[in-house]
Design a protein around this nucleic acid. Sequence first.
DNA 1: AACGTTATCGGGAACGTTTGCGTAAAAATA
DNA 2: TATTTTTACGCAAACGTTCCCGATAACGTT
Lengths: 348, 348
Amino acid sequence: MKFEPVTIKDIGKALGLSTSTVSRALRGSYEISAETKKLVLEYAEKINYRPNPIALSLKERRNHSLGIIVCEIANNFFSQAINGIESIAYNRGYHVIISQSHESYERESVILDHLASRSVDGLLISVSSETKDYEHFRQLYEKGLPIVFFDRIVNEINTHKVIADNFKGAFDATEHLIKNGCKKIAHITSAPYLSISVERLEGYKEALRKNGLEYDEKMVHYSYHGGMIYDEVEEALRKAFKQKQKPDGLFAAGDRITTACLQALKKLDKKIPDDIAVIGFTNTNMGEVFNPPLSVVRQPAFEIGQVATELLISMIESKRPVTEFESKTLQTELIIRESSVKVNNAKK
Amino acid sequence: MKFEPVTIKDIGKALGLSTSTVSRALRGSYEISAETKKLVLEYAEKINYRPNPIALSLKERRNHSLGIIVCEIANNFFSQAINGIESIAYNRGYHVIISQSHESYERESVILDHLASRSVDGLLISVSSETKDYEHFRQLYEKGLPIVFFDRIVNEINTHKVIADNFKGAFDATEHLIKNGCKKIAHITSAPYLSISVERLEGYKEALRKNGLEYDEKMVHYSYHGGMIYDEVEEALRKAFKQKQKPDGLFAAGDRITTACLQALKKLDKKIPDDIAVIGFTNTNMGEVFNPPLSVVRQPAFEIGQVATELLISMIESKRPVTEFESKTLQTELIIRESSVKVNNAKK
DNA sequence: AACGTTATCGGGAACGTTTGCGTAAAAATA
DNA sequence: TATTTTTACGCAAACGTTCCCGATAACGTT
């Protein structure tokens, strides 16, 4: 099937004008007489003329489109972040192309290549949990393609970055568990080389230290696929419960990890919060209908998306090469529900 | 910032060849000598040449991109469907542009215009819950832009359509509630003019009829924003419980509606399943961690996306105008958990 | 009357690519 | 050796648009 849009040439032919005159009339150039303008404008309106953005892109070497790479859109944090991205992008006249790496380094590379060759004007990236090497990003970036990292950032590349305060969020979550009587807190997180993992781990450690609890690396487990593979999480939990001192608290990082933990705990027949108090680093809006209602650290996902997009667009539209880069950190929010509050604090 | 990709012209200049020779060498044309080909290929590889897809699009008047319009990506059904769409599209060499209508007719129109003017080669659409008028679709469609509807389809436009068996899914869900002792079943669904709403309502009615239960329109409530506005759902539930005969069963249609119902029932302090048995038409993969574990009708979202995409691509690549259209219906799956099974069937 | 202004428009190149056509040199044929 | 065929490549147009550079006419200025 073919879709034949009307071109500036058609208008010219119909009106007996050259393409350049039509083009200028459409743009409202001062060197076109009022009547010609009116003629062209009215005719264009009548036949519903739309400029061909592809031809424009070719000419201006600009696309007015932004590429997004995230692991999964079926993840509350990212779908909210994408909404934030869209809200800014559309207002500024940019289109948005969303791609999913599905936590695979290879897919990430392929997508990156695809997106770059499709000439997006800039990239918003949250790296996959498999990614340890950043050369693919660096190559494009050094060629002049603007990139802004958000959430899972890569510190090795010097550009704008936007994250939640993972350290403080993790600290607050962990300390909250401690204050609720937890003595041994398990931490299940994403791949260890991910920026969010190290930041959250540091917050977790600091809360333990400050409250006089010993850090036990046997209590920290990495889900290398960010909770996408359920068995990884169940296995991690099983191991944690095999230790001499069993965990009585759990701090789960990430959307998928948190829900996977909930499923696994149910399967292992552990009661929340009595057997184990749980708090998750997740943006689900259904925390309260879980069993029991889930305490969470909530990230300002929408705002993160917005801020990252503003930075990216400013970078794209900057006349001179940008040399000063910002790293923005947005605050998290601790939402306490039942899953982290032991019914009988004195019991232990 | 500017991003300067290498062109075929650069290669020609560097190798002392014309652009046409380089182009042909790259495509492996038979009229280029083996050594020249080798020369060009190696050089192109070395400087990492990528053809400019924009120039190609302009030439071929093809984009190799597909537009998707859904209400929300933060909806399990749609994110799964999108995964299905991507899985086919990428294999066939198409890129995918995702847009969200957020259940707004106006945004849908704007997006549609935007997508069409960006010259996507075809469109995959699930209409917004606000959409009652289909002229915007029809106009584009009649101009020759291939469109495939999925899930929320529009019967008035004659093209390919792909849906789940909403009638049977609703019938099964309702009958399941009846078999579990429900005498009065409330049904909360999306806007009444949506195809999925009427299909599901019919299934619901048929199950009542077949089992000798009277259809009471006071038990059917429409959430005009598809559950996006929580208050709509809570209000609907409140009304249902104000009837002389209170509902003892609830069939909730749609992802957002189902979770909103769960929240509202909790707020209204109704016990599930004893006060009211619940089954949802939803694709959440967390049904089992809900309180109580949620019975659901599951749609083959991934497959729906795949089938729709295959149909769309076949339409795009068809040489002659397509005149025979298919309407595919995929089967749903009933997953029984605790929320729909009354502990004491005899109690009532 | 000869020139400079101004207003209004068209010609054509350019963006990166493909492709029909033309053509020189090399090879094959007569 | 003269002619034809083949091989291997270049030229230029085309896709839709913008924009620099001219061109033309109608004025106004000396």
